[in-house]
Amino acid sequence: MKLASKAVLGLTLAAAAMAAVAVAQPRGEKEPTLEEVREATARYRDVNVALAEGYIRDPFDMCDTADMMGRPAELGAMGVHYFRPDLVGVTAPPNPRVDGNGLHTDFRKPSILIYEPQADGSMALVAVENLVFQKAWHAAGHDGPPTFQGVKWDAMADDPKTAIDEAHMFQPHYDRHVWVHRENPNGVFAQFNPNVTCKHHKGAAGHTTHAAR
């Protein structure tokens, strides 16, 4: 992802610095089912609810697609990311990469929400996501990546030998997408969804904050 506004990013990181670092899913709690994740996050179909609870629109203002990441276009898209700075635990801006120390893994309260821009300017919730930085995760005593429903999270790190940025300007991290709000032929844990499009993405100024109808 490319930086769209240094001023917006500065405000985002300031908010993160003021927030408490989140912890992982409380010990002893049973891992939620996909249906429980869907029900727990259904209120975020109204993006205004997400904004009111502290989620911030991606300051890079990107709508991510597979071909942007050097992958086949037919894999589809992710969409626009909204994130909670406190749950991600952001500690540093792109210098050269975003860094953090959050350990949050509970998908009933995801650190990231993903929306598809609509033709009328609204945003439709399509997936939820959690992200932890590898350095912080392993420093907390974990030998391997987090898992959800028995599936390891994706390991993301930039390959300096390629022209694209596989880690989206982030330090090496683990993340997991969960497509509980839009059916995904690629699988519920896939990175991209062919049923999602970025064709209506107009940037932050071109989208309203009312829920998709």
Rank of each mutant, 00 (worst) to 15 (best):
63 C>L: 03
47 V>L: 07
209 T>D: 13
18 M>K: 08
195 N>R: 11
207 H>I: 00
90 V>N: 02
98 V>K: 01
139 A>R: 11
91 T>M: 03
210 H>S: 09
154 D>S: 10
185 P>Y: 10
120 D>V: 00
35 E>C: 07
97 R>G: 05
183 E>D: 14
163 A>P: 07
154 D>H: 10
188 V>M: 06
153 W>C: 05
28 G>Q: 11
172 P>W: 03
14 A>L: 14
35 E>T: 15
86 D>L: 01
83 F>E: 09
58 D>S: 10
134 Q>A: 12
17 A>Y: 06
54 G>D: 01
174 Y>T: 04
15 A>L: 12
3 L>R: 12
50 A>P: 09
23 V>I: 15
149 Q>I: 08
121 G>I: 01
152 K>D: 09
130 N>M: 03
197 T>S: 15
210 H>K: 14
155 A>C: 05
6 K>Q: 13
105 T>D: 00
126 V>W: 08
92 A>P: 00
117 P>I: 05
199 K>I: 10
121 G>D: 05
64 D>R: 14
19 A>K: 06
84 R>N: 14
98 V>A: 03
26 P>K: 10
25 Q>G: 13
42 A>Y: 11
208 T>M: 09
180 V>H: 11
205 A>I: 00
107 F>C: 09
194 P>T: 04
80 V>P: 02
145 P>L: 06
75 L>M: 15
96 P>W: 01
105 T>L: 03
157 A>E: 14
104 H>W: 01
52 A>H: 06
94 P>C: 07
204 A>K: 15
22 A>V: 08
18 M>G: 11
40 A>R: 06
203 G>S: 02
207 H>V: 00
69 M>Y: 08
157 A>S: 13
171 Q>E: 10
201 H>Q: 02
134 Q>P: 02
128 V>Y: 12
158 D>A: 09
89 G>A: 03
177 H>D: 12
34 L>T: 09
165 D>T: 13
173 H>F: 10
81 H>E: 02
201 H>L: 00
168 H>R: 11
163 A>C: 03
105 T>F: 06
108 R>M: 04
150 G>C: 11
161 K>M: 08
212 A>L: 05
152 K>V: 01
43 R>G: 04
24 A>Q: 10
187 G>H: 13
76 G>Y: 06
79 G>I: 06
151 V>N: 11
78 M>L: 10
205 A>D: 15
92 A>E: 04
165 D>V: 07
192 F>G: 03
179 W>A: 02
15 A>D: 14
76 G>V: 03
48 N>F: 04
137 W>G: 03
106 D>N: 07
136 A>I: 01
124 A>E: 12
125 L>H: 06
18 M>Q: 13
198 C>Q: 14
144 G>L: 09
197 T>M: 02
208 T>P: 00
149 Q>T: 02
52 A>R: 12
185 P>Q: 05
150 G>V: 03
174 Y>F: 14
56 I>L: 08
118 Q>G: 14
12 T>P: 01
148 F>Q: 10
14 A>P: 05
175 D>K: 15
